[in-house]
Design a protein around this nucleic acid. Structure first.
Lengths: 357, 357
DNA sequence: TCCCTGCGGGAAAGGGCTTTCTCTGCGGTA
DNA sequence: TACCGCAGAGAAAGCCCTTTCCCGCAGGGA
């Protein structure tokens, strides 16, 4: 690899001058020397060693991002928002997938810190895990102590600024909608219970039911992976245990798609026999058939805000921005079938007649 | 930020010793000193400066990857394959999204070279653009000349090893299937014509029709962006121009999903009135309704192979691995409706009666 | 007893770049 | 003419690590 001094030698100038030409320094250089340097760069196909540069100018310009998985639409959208702002400001993003592994999350914080990022953004649910939360907080605090900026998206329990989708309100929206449609036997296809996102959404849902004097018994909840297959499987378990269900809330859209797959496999008509409500409003939600009723979160905006917070002026105290959820009515939700309402027992098909309550 | 010498000073040892402890060097260090160093590291929350490390050990270990967009399922799957191999070998991946902007692609090659990556992988279609292709090739050659390894996925026109999905055979598969189902009025929803992927797939399709003595007239092809909205829009244009179409081939699954949306909006039954065949077999293909008939490409495997090539032994000459495509029959394809076959003119609805040929 | 060996540790030389500081030579003012 | 100031170029001091080379010392063989 050609180095700067190779270029300088070839151009017959000092490395200092070469550097100035290459970086468009404010220090003036005569046109003749400039030309010579540029020519040498072209001839040698010179590319500056980024590590050496980064080391020399102790600049911190890149921003580190830790997400569950960029190719998961939820995070893809958030990342889009992050990128938009970062690009505007000429910042490079270093994106890391934690695949929801707490240890990996911790490692990535170190890694990114080691890479001298100017700021750190963690997106994705927090964990109900005291020890881990404390550890992560220590690391983040240490990073902030050295001038690093931190923002989290969708997790409240950490130091630094936070952008929070209103998961609880979203859960409430879904619950209220189904209640108003007359559903009483509502099952929930939930993500891992260790995630705060799961419990927050569940809490909102529970509250909506409570307002109608109902409750959400634990046996009507199935926890599984937060993805399509998890949703399919949880739905199957739910239906096996309680065939009288008239509605299913999936705690994210991927799971909802899995739920629809299971319902289709069992020839249950959506929404005539069973309604389905998702969560997140990922782009694909409108393209499944029937189009998915879901709770929309302003994902791109969440990314934009987080990045703005972290690149903007420092605040005396951590800021929290809550972004609200919105119900998007499409075609997977409809009135509860009269004859199926509140099929309280759980024997096979037969008992769909007893309209309870 | 604490530095290595801070740690060393605090532990009362030399930086050399501190470094050895921290990196688990082969050189032995007495337990007592080791303890002291480790304690100092913990107290100072020391994290080595990655740039300094990378500069000091001139090790090239990371691998650069340039894709269109990681959150596009096509590339997400490929990336999964790349990751798998890279992780196994303890390599870090630097992933860059070019968003199909040739200039950005060129920039990223430089950027990654500047970051001293051990290898470079470019995934995604090539361009029909001589000037660009030449430029990129020069850059890649310069990189290879300094010991860098290069592999491309899905583009043939560059130096370095190549992993090629058999786009042409895939197009042929789709075309033959539709011919066998009796379709004669076949429209194509294509990606940008500047992409070699588009033209390769189209060529295969054309060949399949030619084998049946048919041809694919240019007016039955609509070029648009390689995404859902592009597919929806192209389908609309296609249908406007030629309402007698009984089948649509979309040149990737995202476009196929857009096509399904347009068909649904126009109340055209799939596959009864119109068949649809996609391309790629992204995960979502099985979850749309009707489930998408498509041409499967071994995306993950493509990633695995490319990374293996690039991290494996160097070959005297560039290698090319061609991976074959496979037709996946699902529910969007069916026999051509008898009365709609080969509606050759293009006036409005009325002429669906003339069953030609 | 002397020399050699080997081990644990430190000094110091990079690695490639940026940037401050220094130096030279020129034009302009007193 | 003598001096000042400044523009343009280079020398050199870092930036933070890794790693080679070297040194001192203790133990073992002759």
């Amino acid at each position: 690899m050609a180095t700067l001094s190779d270029v300088a030698r070839r151009a017959g100038v000092s490395p200092a001058t070469a550097s100035r030409v290459i970086n468009g320094s404010s220090k003036p250089v005569t046109d003749e020397l400039r030309e010579r340097v540029l020519a040498a760069v072209a001839e040698l196909q010179y590319v500056p060693n980024a590590h050496a540069q980064l080391l020399a100018r102790s600049h911190r310009s890149a921003v580190g991002v830790i997400v569950h998985d960029v190719s998961d639409p939820y995070f893809a959208e958030i990342t889009r928002g992050l990128q938009r702002v970062a690009t505007d400001q000429g910042r490079l993003l270093m994106i890391c997938n934690s695949y929801r592994d707490p240890d990996r999350e911790l490692e990535y914080v170190e890694l990114l810190r080691g890479h001298q990022v100017a700021a750190l953004i963690l997106a994705g649910s927090g964990y109900h895990d005291e020890a881990f939360t404390r550890q992560l907080n220590e690391k983040l605090a240490a990073y902030e102590a050295t001038g690093g900026r931190v923002a989290v998206i969708g997790r409240h329990e950490h130091s630094g600024d936070a952008v929070m989708p209103d998961n609880r309100a979203g859960g409430h929206l879904a619950g209220r909608e189904l209640c108003e449609l007359g559903h009483r036997a509502i099952g929930v296809v939930a993500g891992p219970r260790i995630l705060t996102t799961t419990t927050d959404r569940l809490a909102g849902l529970r509250q909506a039911l409570a307002e109608q004097g109902r409750e959400l018994p634990e046996h009507r909840i199935r926890y599984a992976e937060f993805d399509r297959d998890g949703g399919a499987e949880a739905t199957a378990r739910l239906l096996d245990a309680d065939p009288g269900l008239t509605a299913i809330v999936a705690l994210n859209d991927s799971m909802a798609i899995g739920a629809l797959a299971t319902l289709r496999a069992r020839s249950l008509a959506v929404p005539r026999q069973v309604s389905v409500v998702g969560f997140d409003d990922m782009p694909i939600a409108r393209d499944v058939t029937p189009a998915l009723t879901t709770v929309r979160l302003p994902l791109v905006d969440m990314g934009v805000r987080a990045m703005s917070l972290v690149l903007g002026a420092e605040a005396p105290a951590p800021r929290v921005e809550v972004l609200s959820a919105e119900l998007i009515r499409r075609d997977t939700s409809g009135p509860a079938p009269a004859q199926r309402r509140e099929a309280t027992t759980s024997a096979p098909r037969a008992r769909r007649a007893d309209a309870a309550s």
